[in-house]
Simulated assay, not measured.
Amino acid sequence: MNIGTNQITTTQTFAILGSTLVAVGSFTFPRALATDVGTPDMWMSVILGGLITFLSGLFVVKLSQQFPKQTFFQFNQIIVGKYLGWGLSLGFIIYAILLGSFEIRAMGEVTKFYLLEGTPLSVLMICMLWVGTYLLAGGINAMARLFEFIYPITIFIFLLVVMLGIVNFEIDNVRPVLGNGVMPIIKGLVPTLLTNSGMEFLLVWIAFMKRPKQATKVLRWGVFLTVFIYFVTIIITTGVFSVERLQVETWPTLSLIQSYEFKGVFIERFESVFLVVWIIQIFATYAVCHYIAALGVADIFKLKYKKTVYFLLPILYVVALAPSDLNQLSSLGSVIGYISISFSLVIPIFLLIITKLRGLKSE
């Protein structure tokens, strides 16, 4: 796609990145981390994982800045040739489809269970898909403006309803510190890194930035705020439930919000407010994935962007219905996380090394 007037500001890029990083993980992350770590030191895994995410993001930023106004789908062929580059692009598209389908299915499962019990899962997913398609028809500018508006609001509400859980907080549940050494913290890096899926999409967003030199700033604040959100979530949920209880909670964050009640205020139960905010963030992540996949298909097959947006609709729907239950959906999430690590760390480092060795750089 010709970048042309399809440019986004630094703030809009930050909103897109942040909206992608904070998604389904905010619901399931405490349970996954509690299962792998098994100690109250989970918050240390969050901080260490955030640092690794930021360092890997620097490779993504550095690689993309070598080829201004070119997306991953374009500059990878310059680096490794047409056929291998085509294969990398196809892999990136498949990854975006898998992640987008995963978000749609997770949204449908939670909405059906907590809000619309009698509504068929397929109806919920189709509604989300069509709303997303309507948004994406306007291109990246429409999506960026929407995310710029909703991101600060949703993050504020999310942090507010989570931190209200401090009324049931017990300090003994987050003790002792380093009681079992550092190995549990290391084990917690895997679910932490898997939860940070979405940072690799900077391989595309930087090409659209009006000021691509500020991409490092976007990365820094995007990762910092995401780590802060997960840090607060882990501390509060651990303090309220304990590590042992978190290991058996299906949706720990929602259970946290259901555990407290403020009588006499306008809203006594906050889980509905949280679910609305969470669904908006899920929609944002899905929309990003749909856009990336459509952009990639349009680029490598030389098609019009809007046609590829509609073309991918049934594919996203079918993939979203593939997992038969929540266990299979969780397994799909783990697979997606490992693919994310490949595109956020392994492949960017590989391409950056080749770029330096061959002295490649787009003027």
Results as ranks from 00 to 15, higher is better:
residue 1 M to G: 12
residue 164 L to W: 03
residue 337 G to S: 05
residue 252 P to A: 08
residue 106 A to G: 13
residue 42 M to S: 15
residue 215 A to C: 03
residue 219 L to M: 05
residue 64 S to V: 14
residue 73 F to I: 07
residue 22 V to A: 11
residue 243 V to C: 10
residue 280 I to M: 13
residue 192 T to A: 04
residue 84 L to A: 14
residue 65 Q to I: 07
residue 204 V to F: 14
residue 286 Y to C: 10
residue 170 E to M: 09
residue 62 K to F: 05
residue 298 A to H: 00
residue 154 T to C: 15
residue 257 I to S: 03
residue 14 F to H: 13
residue 315 I to A: 04
residue 106 A to Q: 04
residue 134 Y to H: 06
residue 121 L to C: 07
residue 213 K to T: 09
residue 158 F to C: 08
residue 136 L to V: 01
residue 142 A to G: 04
residue 117 E to C: 04
residue 85 G to I: 01
residue 156 F to A: 14
residue 93 I to R: 10
residue 21 L to D: 04
residue 294 A to Q: 03
residue 219 L to V: 06
residue 94 I to H: 06
residue 266 F to M: 00
residue 181 G to E: 07
residue 8 I to F: 03
residue 351 L to R: 03
residue 263 K to E: 11
residue 240 V to A: 07
residue 199 M to W: 08
residue 56 S to C: 14
residue 169 F to V: 07
residue 23 A to G: 15
residue 306 K to L: 12
residue 235 I to Q: 09
residue 42 M to A: 15
residue 34 A to F: 03
residue 250 T to D: 13
residue 143 M to H: 06
residue 89 S to R: 04
residue 148 E to P: 00
residue 108 G to L: 02
residue 222 G to D: 02
residue 28 T to C: 05
residue 327 N to R: 11
residue 246 L to C: 05
residue 196 N to K: 12
residue 2 N to M: 11
residue 141 N to Y: 00
residue 346 V to C: 07
residue 278 W to Y: 13
residue 123 V to N: 11
residue 160 L to F: 14
residue 156 F to Q: 00
residue 258 Q to F: 10
residue 129 L to Q: 08
residue 207 A to N: 00
residue 211 R to N: 15
residue 51 L to T: 06
residue 251 W to S: 09
residue 221 W to L: 11
residue 340 S to Y: 03
residue 280 I to Y: 03
residue 259 S to I: 07
residue 186 I to C: 03
residue 182 V to L: 14
residue 356 K to Y: 12
residue 294 A to F: 04
